[in-house]
Amino acid sequence: MMSARVRPGATVWLLAVYAFLYVPILCLIAFSFTAGEITTQFDGFSLRWYGELLRDDELVDAVLLSLRVGAFAATAAVVVGSAAAFVLARFGRYPGSAAFAGMTTAPMVMPEVVIGLSLVLLFTHPLFTFLGGRGVAAIWAAHTTLCTAYVTVLVQSRLREMDRSLEEAALDLGCPPFKVFFVITVPVIAPALVAGWLLAFTLSMDDFVLAAMLSDPGSTTLPVLVFARLHHGLKPEINALATVIVALVSLAVVVANRAMLSAQRKRAAALRHAAGISPTGVPNVTLGSPDIRR
Protein backbone atom coordinates (compact mmCIF):
# COMPACT_ATOMS: atom_id res chain seq x y z
CA MET A 1 0.00 0.00 0.00
CA MET A 2 1.23 3.44 -0.79
CA SER A 3 0.93 4.69 2.75
CA ALA A 4 3.62 2.31 3.95
CA ARG A 5 6.21 3.48 1.46
CA VAL A 6 9.05 5.46 2.94
CA ARG A 7 9.54 8.76 1.16
CA PRO A 8 12.78 10.60 1.86
CA GLY A 9 11.10 14.01 1.69
CA ALA A 10 8.59 12.98 4.30
CA THR A 11 11.27 11.70 6.64
CA VAL A 12 13.30 14.87 6.32
CA TRP A 13 10.28 17.04 7.04
CA LEU A 14 9.25 14.98 10.03
CA LEU A 15 12.75 15.06 11.44
CA ALA A 16 13.07 18.81 10.91
CA VAL A 17 9.82 19.58 12.69
CA TYR A 18 10.61 17.26 15.55
CA ALA A 19 13.99 18.95 15.85
CA PHE A 20 12.22 22.32 16.00
CA LEU A 21 9.98 20.98 18.75
CA TYR A 22 12.65 19.26 20.78
CA VAL A 23 15.96 21.12 20.40
CA PRO A 24 14.91 23.95 22.73
CA ILE A 25 13.77 21.47 25.36
CA LEU A 26 16.90 19.36 25.03
CA CYS A 27 19.06 22.48 25.45
CA LEU A 28 17.21 23.30 28.65
CA ILE A 29 17.81 19.80 29.92
CA ALA A 30 21.49 19.77 28.98
CA PHE A 31 22.27 23.03 30.74
CA SER A 32 20.44 22.01 33.88
CA PHE A 33 23.48 19.86 34.69
CA THR A 34 25.99 22.69 34.57
CA ALA A 35 27.99 23.53 37.63
CA GLY A 36 28.20 27.23 36.72
CA GLU A 37 25.78 30.09 37.04
CA ILE A 38 25.18 30.70 33.35
CA THR A 39 22.30 29.01 31.61
CA THR A 40 24.09 28.68 28.28
CA GLN A 41 27.55 27.66 29.30
CA PHE A 42 28.51 24.20 30.42
CA ASP A 43 30.96 24.58 33.31
CA GLY A 44 31.27 20.94 34.26
CA PHE A 45 28.67 18.37 35.23
CA SER A 46 26.89 18.79 38.52
CA LEU A 47 23.56 18.20 40.14
CA ARG A 48 23.98 21.45 42.01
CA TRP A 49 20.86 23.09 40.63
CA TYR A 50 18.68 20.14 41.54
CA GLY A 51 19.80 20.59 45.12
CA GLU A 52 19.01 24.29 44.91
CA LEU A 53 15.59 23.38 43.63
CA LEU A 54 14.80 21.35 46.72
CA ARG A 55 16.18 24.00 49.06
CA ASP A 56 14.13 26.73 47.44
CA ASP A 57 11.20 26.93 49.85
CA GLU A 58 9.35 29.52 47.82
CA LEU A 59 9.43 27.24 44.80
CA VAL A 60 8.47 24.14 46.74
CA ASP A 61 5.51 26.02 48.21
CA ALA A 62 4.45 27.16 44.77
CA VAL A 63 4.64 23.59 43.45
CA LEU A 64 2.56 22.30 46.33
CA LEU A 65 -0.02 25.04 45.83
CA SER A 66 -0.22 24.30 42.11
CA LEU A 67 -0.70 20.60 42.79
CA ARG A 68 -3.43 21.37 45.26
CA VAL A 69 -5.25 23.80 43.00
CA GLY A 70 -4.77 21.44 40.05
CA ALA A 71 -6.21 18.44 41.84
CA PHE A 72 -9.23 20.29 43.20
CA ALA A 73 -9.88 22.16 39.98
CA ALA A 74 -9.63 18.94 37.94
CA THR A 75 -12.02 17.15 40.26
CA ALA A 76 -14.53 19.98 40.22
CA ALA A 77 -14.20 20.30 36.44
CA VAL A 78 -14.95 16.59 36.00
CA VAL A 79 -18.09 16.92 38.11
CA VAL A 80 -19.37 20.12 36.49
CA GLY A 81 -18.18 19.11 33.02
CA SER A 82 -19.80 15.68 33.14
CA ALA A 83 -23.08 17.21 34.23
CA ALA A 84 -22.80 19.75 31.42
CA ALA A 85 -21.98 16.98 28.95
CA PHE A 86 -25.09 15.13 30.06
CA VAL A 87 -27.23 18.18 29.58
CA LEU A 88 -25.78 18.72 26.11
CA ALA A 89 -25.89 15.11 24.96
CA ARG A 90 -29.12 13.95 26.54
CA PHE A 91 -31.52 16.75 27.35
CA GLY A 92 -32.29 17.61 23.76
CA ARG A 93 -33.55 21.05 22.94
CA TYR A 94 -35.09 23.30 25.51
CA PRO A 95 -35.28 27.07 25.82
CA GLY A 96 -31.73 28.24 26.43
CA SER A 97 -30.03 25.05 25.33
CA ALA A 98 -28.08 26.83 22.59
CA ALA A 99 -26.91 29.50 25.03
CA PHE A 100 -25.81 26.79 27.40
CA ALA A 101 -23.86 24.99 24.68
CA GLY A 102 -22.11 28.23 23.82
CA MET A 103 -21.36 29.08 27.42
CA THR A 104 -19.82 25.76 28.33
CA THR A 105 -17.37 25.68 25.46
CA ALA A 106 -16.62 29.39 25.12
CA PRO A 107 -13.86 29.47 27.77
CA MET A 108 -11.91 27.16 25.46
CA VAL A 109 -11.81 29.69 22.64
CA MET A 110 -11.81 33.00 24.55
CA PRO A 111 -8.41 34.60 25.07
CA GLU A 112 -7.30 33.91 28.61
CA VAL A 113 -6.71 37.59 29.26
CA VAL A 114 -10.39 38.28 28.67
CA ILE A 115 -11.54 35.44 30.91
CA GLY A 116 -9.06 36.50 33.53
CA LEU A 117 -10.21 40.09 33.44
CA SER A 118 -13.87 39.11 33.62
CA LEU A 119 -13.26 36.92 36.65
CA VAL A 120 -11.22 39.60 38.39
CA LEU A 121 -14.16 41.94 37.94
CA LEU A 122 -16.40 39.32 39.52
CA PHE A 123 -14.17 38.56 42.46
CA THR A 124 -13.48 42.21 43.24
CA HIS A 125 -17.08 43.33 42.82
CA PRO A 126 -18.55 44.70 46.03
CA LEU A 127 -21.67 42.56 45.62
CA PHE A 128 -19.65 39.37 45.38
CA THR A 129 -17.37 39.70 48.38
CA PHE A 130 -18.90 36.49 49.68
CA LEU A 131 -16.84 34.70 47.04
CA GLY A 132 -13.79 35.66 49.08
CA GLY A 133 -12.03 38.05 46.71
CA ARG A 134 -8.87 37.18 44.88
CA GLY A 135 -6.83 34.28 46.17
CA VAL A 136 -6.56 30.51 46.02
CA ALA A 137 -10.32 29.96 45.87
CA ALA A 138 -10.64 32.43 43.00
CA ILE A 139 -7.87 30.67 41.08
CA TRP A 140 -9.55 27.35 41.74
CA ALA A 141 -12.89 28.65 40.44
CA ALA A 142 -11.24 30.17 37.37
CA HIS A 143 -9.38 26.95 36.56
CA THR A 144 -12.51 24.91 37.11
CA THR A 145 -14.40 27.10 34.66
CA LEU A 146 -11.69 26.83 32.03
CA CYS A 147 -11.18 23.08 32.48
CA THR A 148 -14.91 22.38 32.55
CA ALA A 149 -15.05 23.38 28.90
CA TYR A 150 -12.48 20.76 27.95
CA VAL A 151 -14.00 18.05 30.13
CA THR A 152 -17.43 18.81 28.68
CA VAL A 153 -16.21 18.33 25.14
CA LEU A 154 -14.43 15.07 25.99
CA VAL A 155 -17.28 13.54 27.97
CA GLN A 156 -19.92 14.74 25.55
CA SER A 157 -18.25 13.10 22.59
CA ARG A 158 -17.89 9.88 24.57
CA LEU A 159 -21.57 10.02 25.50
CA ARG A 160 -22.55 10.55 21.89
CA GLU A 161 -20.41 7.64 20.78
CA MET A 162 -21.83 5.46 23.48
CA ASP A 163 -24.43 3.01 22.25
CA ARG A 164 -27.63 4.20 23.89
CA SER A 165 -29.01 0.70 23.76
CA LEU A 166 -26.55 -0.25 26.54
CA GLU A 167 -28.57 1.82 28.96
CA GLU A 168 -31.81 0.60 27.46
CA ALA A 169 -30.67 -3.00 27.78
CA ALA A 170 -29.96 -2.44 31.46
CA LEU A 171 -33.41 -0.96 31.94
CA ASP A 172 -34.90 -3.82 29.99
CA LEU A 173 -33.17 -6.28 32.30
CA GLY A 174 -34.83 -4.71 35.29
CA CYS A 175 -32.29 -2.17 36.47
CA PRO A 176 -33.93 1.00 37.83
CA PRO A 177 -33.05 4.19 35.91
CA PHE A 178 -30.98 5.81 38.63
CA LYS A 179 -28.88 2.69 39.10
CA VAL A 180 -28.36 2.37 35.34
CA PHE A 181 -26.40 5.60 35.46
CA PHE A 182 -23.93 4.28 38.00
CA VAL A 183 -23.54 0.67 36.87
CA ILE A 184 -23.59 1.23 33.11
CA THR A 185 -23.11 4.84 32.05
CA VAL A 186 -20.31 5.84 34.40
CA PRO A 187 -18.16 2.73 33.78
CA VAL A 188 -18.63 3.07 30.03
CA ILE A 189 -17.57 6.72 29.96
CA ALA A 190 -14.90 6.21 32.62
CA PRO A 191 -11.99 6.54 30.17
CA ALA A 192 -13.25 9.98 29.18
CA LEU A 193 -13.61 10.96 32.83
CA VAL A 194 -10.03 9.91 33.55
CA ALA A 195 -8.71 11.61 30.43
CA GLY A 196 -10.71 14.72 31.32
CA TRP A 197 -9.30 14.80 34.82
CA LEU A 198 -5.73 14.48 33.59
CA LEU A 199 -6.20 17.14 30.94
CA ALA A 200 -7.80 19.48 33.47
CA PHE A 201 -5.01 18.86 35.93
CA THR A 202 -2.26 19.71 33.43
CA LEU A 203 -4.17 22.77 32.21
CA SER A 204 -4.47 24.06 35.74
CA MET A 205 -0.84 23.29 36.58
CA ASP A 206 0.25 25.16 33.48
CA ASP A 207 -2.00 28.19 33.60
CA PHE A 208 -0.29 31.49 34.17
CA VAL A 209 -2.66 34.22 33.01
CA LEU A 210 -5.70 33.37 35.13
CA ALA A 211 -3.59 32.56 38.17
CA ALA A 212 -1.58 35.77 37.87
CA MET A 213 -4.64 37.98 37.51
CA LEU A 214 -6.48 36.32 40.37
CA SER A 215 -3.62 35.77 42.77
CA ASP A 216 -3.11 37.72 45.96
CA PRO A 217 0.19 37.79 47.84
CA GLY A 218 -0.56 34.51 49.56
CA SER A 219 -1.38 32.55 46.44
CA THR A 220 1.61 32.22 44.17
CA THR A 221 1.25 29.19 41.92
CA LEU A 222 4.22 27.70 40.15
CA PRO A 223 3.69 29.46 36.80
CA VAL A 224 3.23 32.80 38.56
CA LEU A 225 6.49 32.30 40.42
CA VAL A 226 8.35 31.12 37.32
CA PHE A 227 7.12 34.11 35.36
CA ALA A 228 8.34 36.48 38.03
CA ARG A 229 11.72 34.80 38.10
CA LEU A 230 12.05 34.92 34.33
CA HIS A 231 11.84 38.70 34.61
CA HIS A 232 14.61 38.72 37.19
CA GLY A 233 17.13 36.93 35.04
CA LEU A 234 17.81 33.41 34.00
CA LYS A 235 19.31 30.85 36.33
CA PRO A 236 20.03 27.16 35.68
CA GLU A 237 17.68 26.37 38.54
CA ILE A 238 14.79 26.96 36.14
CA ASN A 239 16.43 24.51 33.76
CA ALA A 240 16.48 21.92 36.51
CA LEU A 241 12.81 22.56 37.16
CA ALA A 242 12.03 22.18 33.46
CA THR A 243 13.98 18.94 33.33
CA VAL A 244 12.05 17.51 36.26
CA ILE A 245 8.73 18.46 34.69
CA VAL A 246 9.65 17.06 31.28
CA ALA A 247 10.88 13.85 32.88
CA LEU A 248 7.71 13.39 34.91
CA VAL A 249 5.41 14.13 32.02
CA SER A 250 7.32 11.87 29.64
CA LEU A 251 7.24 9.08 32.16
CA ALA A 252 3.51 9.45 32.64
CA VAL A 253 2.82 9.62 28.92
CA VAL A 254 5.03 6.64 28.12
CA VAL A 255 3.51 4.55 30.88
CA ALA A 256 -0.01 5.45 29.78
CA ASN A 257 0.84 4.69 26.19
CA ARG A 258 2.35 1.34 27.08
CA ALA A 259 -0.68 0.40 29.10
CA MET A 260 -2.94 1.33 26.23
CA LEU A 261 -0.91 -0.59 23.68
CA SER A 262 -0.68 -3.71 25.77
CA ALA A 263 -4.41 -3.62 26.40
CA GLN A 264 -4.94 -3.33 22.66
CA ARG A 265 -2.60 -6.23 21.96
CA LYS A 266 -4.26 -8.41 24.56
CA ARG A 267 -7.59 -7.65 23.06
CA ALA A 268 -6.42 -8.38 19.53
CA ALA A 269 -4.94 -11.67 20.66
CA ALA A 270 -8.14 -12.65 22.39
CA LEU A 271 -10.09 -11.81 19.27
CA ARG A 272 -7.84 -13.91 17.09
CA HIS A 273 -8.25 -16.71 19.58
CA ALA A 274 -12.01 -16.31 19.58
CA ALA A 275 -12.12 -16.32 15.81
CA GLY A 276 -9.79 -19.29 15.59
CA ILE A 277 -11.80 -21.62 17.74
CA SER A 278 -15.24 -20.27 17.11
CA PRO A 279 -17.25 -23.09 15.52
CA THR A 280 -18.06 -20.88 12.58
CA GLY A 281 -14.57 -19.66 11.89
CA VAL A 282 -16.02 -16.46 10.60
CA PRO A 283 -14.15 -13.20 11.10
CA ASN A 284 -15.37 -11.12 13.95
CA VAL A 285 -17.90 -8.38 13.77
CA THR A 286 -17.09 -5.52 16.04
CA LEU A 287 -19.67 -4.61 18.57
CA GLY A 288 -18.83 -0.95 18.61
CA SER A 289 -19.98 -0.47 15.07
CA PRO A 290 -22.10 2.63 14.52
CA ASP A 291 -25.48 2.50 16.12
CA ILE A 292 -27.35 0.62 13.47
CA ARG A 293 -30.81 0.95 14.86
CA ARG A 294 -31.26 4.63 14.43
Partner: peptide
Amino acid sequence: VPAHRRPTNMMFQSYALFPH
Protein backbone atom coordinates in the same frame (compact mmCIF):
# COMPACT_ATOMS: atom_id res chain seq x y z
CA VAL B 1 -45.38 -0.37 33.73
CA PRO B 2 -41.93 1.18 33.23
CA ALA B 3 -39.33 -0.68 31.20
CA HIS B 4 -37.44 -2.03 34.17
CA ARG B 5 -40.54 -3.68 35.65
CA ARG B 6 -41.87 -5.28 32.47
CA PRO B 7 -41.82 -9.05 32.11
CA THR B 8 -40.29 -8.66 28.66
CA ASN B 9 -36.70 -8.90 27.58
CA MET B 10 -35.18 -7.64 24.41
CA MET B 11 -32.18 -8.59 22.34
CA PHE B 12 -30.90 -5.41 20.75
CA GLN B 13 -29.83 -5.06 17.17
CA SER B 14 -26.33 -4.04 18.31
CA TYR B 15 -26.56 -6.72 21.04
CA ALA B 16 -25.80 -3.99 23.60
CA LEU B 17 -23.52 -6.25 25.62
CA PHE B 18 -22.05 -4.28 28.51
CA PRO B 19 -18.45 -3.77 27.42
CA HIS B 20 -17.05 -3.49 30.94
